[in-house]
Structures are given as structure tokens and as C-alpha cells.
Design a protein around this nucleic acid. Structure first.
Length: 330
DNA sequence: ACACGTAGAGAACTGGT
DNA sequence: ACCAGCACTCTACGTGT
């Protein structure tokens, strides 16, 4: 992409012609000669220093041949584009059963061309998959780092993504959305607590698209993902709260008890975990405020209020005879 | 400062059509 | 595929300790 102006043997007439063909070449202010500043990607006036245009990078082929017959100055090849996976650089074997002069091919040659087309297609699509995968894995890597998830979870996410790719689940969906979904699915199946919100924060896609992609992924791949277990969140929240070890243990017991009474049906596991910690704080004398628990758990104080009383009520004085027994198959 | 309760809005799942 | 109903959570506010 160098615009080479040091070829001083060119006549000035030729230069004018070149300038005319290339486009903007004289400064609108002083009519001075414009130069491309490669380092900054700008076009500046050599005389007055005016910056005429940013991003004036010409991705077309160089307007000068490299070979002996270079002076023919034929402009060769199409400009590249990011909209195609190969940037438009690949060669496509045409479908006509004729040679370059239009003469029909013999049967033997036709068969040969057909095989070549097949392989051409295979390589091109494989290349496509590679790029897709590479980008997705890069995204997963980036998000994993941002979330601080362990390496094996990241590995699982990659495997899930590959499966999705193999089962042709990707066409029509964004790579970012699907990689986010794969990472979230990996976290879930590994019991590494990362909430939807946390994952959404580091993702390049919005929550809606992410959730849609996640559901789709789980459904199509039949991923066996347990409903999130509130106890998975306890260590994380407890450490962020600098809570006493006893609080965490007590909270775990509360959640166990709650599970046996089938207290969670559709209730947010994060909210339950937060409420359990708060309740445990009260019971063990290591008080935590609702506000701080709500803060680290990312739920509202109201949710904690509503949940923690249920948690305490369950194995409190009342016992359970008032509750209708609800057969919950989990 | 903190805890508690309530009302209305809104997102998400379910079942009906 | 669209829609209504539902349980749940959130924000916002007022009250009580």
C-alpha cells in the first residue's frame, strides 16, 4: 500500500495523469501537493500541512507494475474486503465446461474439472470454519480472562462451540453470541457461578441475543445442565463480604434444608444464596447488612428480605406441617 | 443507618388458540 | 406464531427501630 513517489524518472505529465486518476491530490487550501502519511493513516498537504482526510488508505493494488512490463500500469485485481471470510482473495473455479477460449472441454477434462471444483469448495469451506473457530475461541479466551474462570471451563466452552459448529448450528447467528453462550453453558455445567449479568458485561452482544443463543445451544445440543445450585455462589459471595467461615457453613445448611422442603421453584438461586448468607449472619451473630449482601450478589434488598424469612421459617419453630407437600422431581 | 413492607412496572415462562 | 396469565424480581417510597 505504499504510494511511491520517489520514481523521479517519471515525467511530470505522467505524474499529473496519475494524480488525476487517483483522485484527491491537491490541497484545497493552497493547491499544494498532498502526501500520504502512512504512519498516521492521514493525507496531508506537503506545503501547508493541512490534514485532508484520515483513513486514506488505498487498499487497491499499486499503480505501478513490479515486473519488466510494469509500465503497462494495468491495475490488477479486485480490492480486498473484510466482508468475505477470505477477504475476496480466493480463486473460484468456474462452472463452465469450456476452456478460456470458449472451446468445450472433453469428457475427461470435464470430469477432472468437476473433481477440482469439489475440492476447491471443500478447502474454501474448511477455511471458513477455521476462521470462524479462531475468532470464537479468541472471544472465549478474552471473556474467560475477564471473568477469571478456570482453564478447564474455558476448555469446555471451546468443546461446546466446536460441537455447535459441527452440527451446523451457527449459520444465521453471530459468532460473538454463540461463543458467549458456549462459555456460559460451560460455567453452568461446571458449577462455576457466573451470572448471566456478569457474562453479559464482558460480552460484545446484548443480553437478549446472548440468552436466545444460550437457549438455542442448550436445546439443540441437548446439554445436560442442572438448574443452578445456590450453594455454588456461597464461597464467592462470602469471600467478597469477608464473611466468617461459620456464616458460610450455616448458610449452606439453610440452603440444604430449604432444598428438602422444595423451597426453590423458580426463585432466583442468586437471591437464595444471598438471603442464606444474610440469614446466617443474623443467626451466627456475624451480622451483615442487607445492603452489602445485595451489593455483592447483584440482587435487590427486597429479594433478600423476601427470601431470608422463608429460609429461617422452614427450620424454625414452625416445622413443616402447614406446608402442602409439593412433589418436586428437581 | 438499617430493617421492613408495599405498590406498580417489567421480564420471562406457560398454556391456550 | 401471537397472546394472556402467572410468578418472580426490581425500583421507589414510606414507616419503624
Amino acid at each position: 500500500m505504499e504510494r511511491i513517489d520517489e520514481d523521479t524518472r517519471e515525467s511530470t505529465a505522467d505524474e499529473r495523469e496519475r494524480e488525476r486518476r487517483v483522485g484527491v491530490r491537491t490541497c484545497p487550501e493552497c493547491e499544494g501537493r498532498l502526501l500520504d502519511d502512512e504512519e498516521h493513516g492521514e493525507t496531508v498537504c506537503g506545503d501547508c500541512g493541512l490534514v485532508v482526510a484520515d483513513e486514506a488508505i488505498d487498499r487497491g493494488p499499486e499503480w505501478r507494475g513490479q515486473t519488466r512490463e510494469g509500465d503497462s500500469r494495468s491495475r490488477v485485481g479486485a480490492p480486498t474486503t473484510k466482508t468475505m471470510h477470505d477477504e475476496g482473495l480466493s480463486t473460484v473455479i468456474g462452472w463452465q465446461d469450456r476452456d478460456a477460449k470458449g472451446t468445450p472441454l472433453s469428457g475427461r477434462q470435464r470430469a477432472r474439472m468437476s473433481r477440482l471444483r469439489t475440492w476447491d469448495e471443500r478447502f474454501r469451506t474448511r477455511d471458513h470454519r477455521d476462521r470462524n473457530l479462531k475468532q470464537a475461541l479468541g472471544e472465549i479466551d478474552r471473556m474467560s480472562a475477564a471473568l477469571g474462570v478456570p482453564e478447564d471451563v474455558q476448555e469446555t466452552a471451546s468443546v461446546i462451540y466446536r460441537r455447535a459448529l459441527d452440527e451446523e448450528l451457527l449459520p444465521g447467528r453471530s459468532i460473538e453470541g454463540m461463543s458467549t453462550a458456549a462459555l456460559y453453558a460451560a460455567c453452568r455445567s461446571a458449577g462455576v457461578p457466573r451470572s448471566l449479568d456478569e457474562v453479559t458485561d464482558v460480552s460484545r452482544v446484548d443480553g437478549m441475543e446472548f440468552k436466545r443463543a444460550y437457549r438455542y445451544l442448550v436445546r439443540e445440543l441437548d446439554l445436560a445442565i442442572d438448574p443452578p445450585d445456590p450453594t455454588d455462589y456461597l464461597p464467592k459471595f462470602a469471600s467478597e463480604l469477608d464473611a466468617d467461615e461459620a456464616v458460610q457453613r450455616f448458610a449452606r445448611d439453610l440452603l440444604e434444608a430449604a432444598r428438602e422442603r422444595a423451597l426453590h421453584s423458580g426463585k432466583s438461586p442468586v437471591g437464595l444464596a444471598a438471603a442464606a448468607l444474610y440469614a446466617a449472619g443474623l443467626e451466627t451473630g456475624h451480622r451483615l447488612t442487607q445492603a452489602e449482601v445485595a451489593e455483592v450478589a447483584g440482587v435487590s434488598e427486597v429479594t433478600i428480605r423476601n427470601r431470608y424469612q422463608e429460609l429461617l421459617g422452614v427450620d424454625g419453630p414452625g416445622r413443616s406441617e402447614t406446608d402442602v407437600e409439593e412433589p418436586e422431581p428437581a
